[in-house]
Design a protein around this nucleic acid. Sequence first.
DNA 1: CACTAGTGCAA
DNA 2: TATTGCACTAGTG
Length: 610
Amino acid sequence: MRRELATVSTRVPIQQDLEAFRRQEPDWERLRALWNELEFEALLRQLPAPETPAISAESLPTISGAEALRQWLSAVPAGDPVAVDWVGEGGPPEPVLRALGLYHPAAGAAVLTLDAGAPAFGGRRLIGHDIKHVIEWWMARGNPPAFEDTAVGAYLLNPARTSYRLDEISAELLGEGPGVAAAGSRARWVWQIWEMLPRALKEVGLHPLYADLEQPLVPVLAAMERHGIRVDPARLADFSKELDLTLERLTREIYERAGEEFNIGSPKQMARILFEKLKLPPVKKTKTGYSTDADVLEQLALGHELPAKIIEHRTLAKLKSTYADALPVLINPVTGRIHTSFNQLVTATGRLSSSSPNLQNIPIRTELGRRIRAAFVPEPGWRFVAADYSQIELRILAHVSGEESLLAAFRAGEDIHRRTAAEVFGVEVDVVTSEQRDVAKTTNFSVIYGVTAFGLSRGLSITPKQAQEFLNRFFERHPKVKAYLERTVAEGRERGFVQTLLGRRRYIPELRSGNPNLRSFAERMATNAPVQGTAADLIKIAMVRMAKALEDSGLATRMLLQVHDELLFESPEAEVPRLESLARQVMESAMTLDVPLKVDIKTGGDWAEA
DNA sequence: CACTAGTGCAA
DNA sequence: TATTGCACTAGTG
């Protein structure tokens, strides 16, 4: 029976005046400041434009042609830099630049229109915010001028931001903006950021990292992006067709065993088939339902034919859609090559990232995956040369922790995982089994990632209890590693940040969180960031020095890619021996640690061979 | 079109 | 319930 509304008491005391609930106009400035601080990018875009930009586009003088530029520059004292802000679009190898906003306090703001040629700034330095695009545009027209990059500086001050847009950085460092502003006003922000940036960097000891490493890296990355890498579209097309044939067969076999057709690419539909229709045992859950990831499917495959087919389908579909079909589309019609973007402002640890396409995650581990890698080829008559740092993160861990057993192993040129296995299992090095070595290898990596017994148990397919016992033995045999990890977390908690060998910072305020989950996550970040970040420092030094060495040597060899611990070069056949010795010399001496650095070099007629 | 979730590739 | 990324497809609104 329905209960009458009147029988329910509605007598709730209300303190506020009804007037207090009336909708009021938001305080737009405070809202913008808050959302900016919280990095609510999507919400910020929906905000109405602020009142009036400091300088409106209409009021800015327009500079067209060399003579007008010379005149504007005549007000700028000799030797002074000029702040610029670019208007354009597109990416490597040659972005389109439509105009440059200019600013100097003595000359004011102006907009420089751009035609075919590069403008002449009379030897003055340019200051830009995320200026790599401008450098690339310039490289297509001759030698770019000297420059500074305020975005790179802002990244060093806090690498954890999700965005380094000029208006947001201005708001944070200058307390001005964000909002819509003409290029001239934006160039003024660039000038103002540059005015305070050296002091801000020096205050936290980051100025050398800017001046000696990140700033010099910008044109190196620009050149790599412009070189691009050659891909053989025929190899990818052939592979794509082969994948298609197998996928068709697998699709039929999957529908047959499922008893119906469904979208194999939909985890939701797949979960319905596996766990509702076929009543297979659910292994783990996601936020929204049952998981169907590879781990789960592998377990299910022990008891049913379908999951194995699905794994194979997933693998092939991934290779086809992400690589075989996607890469040919990205071949630049003018250069015939693929030009990735190397992002210098993305990672919280100092690593580079790569996008459009991501060339840092090209498959290598399986034979099928290597087919993709084999489609990357050098020019006829040239060779690929791949130089990678051997065990770089473990060597860095050995150095920063001072752990004797690791130091000794690396100094003696031993197999580090075999040595760890011998110590932890309490046997002689020469009787370590391959299984013991695999266990030690996984343990070594887990330590670098910020170990938990649970995580290691998953990696080794053992119980968390066994994993914990294993870790206990590891830390017994590596007491200085244990001390280093504990010291790093403790320092991070006290200071609010952790550091690499070169002083690169990562702020981790969550180290002080009362939430145990959040704090544990923060502690893993804190132990990993100095190691991963020092490796990033190291290879960046190597890149800057390699670029210089290649230029000085007069070699035609080009540096094409960086994949975290590896550099890929494209080299005329005749230059390969010289390049090998140069790369080894430069890379192994990029830092002096308490252990030797070791670089392995391979050459090949495609990237899989190299 | 913007966004999230799930998934999987690399070091 | 291991670190750092990017990108795919499906699905929602």
